[in-house]
Amino acid sequence: MGDLKAEAIGLDFHYGEFQALHAIDLPIHENAVTALIGPSGCGKSTFLRCCNRMHDLYDGSRYGGEVKLYPDGVNIVGDDVDPIEMRMRIGMVFQKPNPFPKSIYDNVAFGLRTRGGLARSEIADAVEPALKSAALWDEVKDRLQESAWKLSGGQQQRLCIARALATGPELLLLDEPTSALDPIATAGIEELILALRKRITIVIVTHNMQQATRISDWTAFFYLGRLVEFGATKQLFVKPEKAETEAYLTGRFG
């Protein structure tokens, strides 16, 4: 586990008057899975959504500090940085599967078409590998023109992952991607994350601590808008350094 892919340095975030994140320092290791855990409202999703400037969609949000994206070290939350440019480099998958009301093919092609300047054949060449990476190809290869809304929940979520992968993102953000899925579909997504982690840097928010231990290399524990503890997953779960982390992990709150 070598280089850093991204790094939060003194990241603050405000919704209007309310400060949701306080001076977060968090390294994101390259080609590894970083899990963000903590009770509801602790800021883990808020942190994730800073990484692709999703907060810009809503009025009254304000960033402070830095989230650097390597290798070029651009500050994602910088005022002079174009959020659209950043979002093109970073993929995101949401809690509830949210495929577009389009065909399976068009869903995967969406990001490529947004970038523009690609020939039809180039787009077609990218759709199949993306669906294969998301372990969905075999299930949908004969019905690519069908509506994505006809797929099951687990298939829809894998389609959303394929959609995010199609543009070759440098960083993949997963915001509780299995919270709306049944256990079997959840297992499928976890398997997929394990298969992807050698190739892409993943940050995942999860409510499920077993899930964090199963799939992540690094874990960050958030509480009340602060990063309490960060470390290798095995270490953090077996021997947490902070009392708050231990209390949360042993189920005393949250």
């Binding site: 093109m88 577009f100 969406f110 959303c160």
Partner: peptide, 24 residues
């Protein structure tokens, strides 16, 4: 969530309106 999905892919407001909201 549908709009967020499109924005997260780097779509502009016009693209979100025309390619996602209108068909939906």
């Amino acid at each position: 969530e549908l709009r967020e999905a499109a924005f997260a892919m780097g779509a502009t407001r016009v693209e979100v309106a025309v390619r996602v909201v209108l068909p939906a």
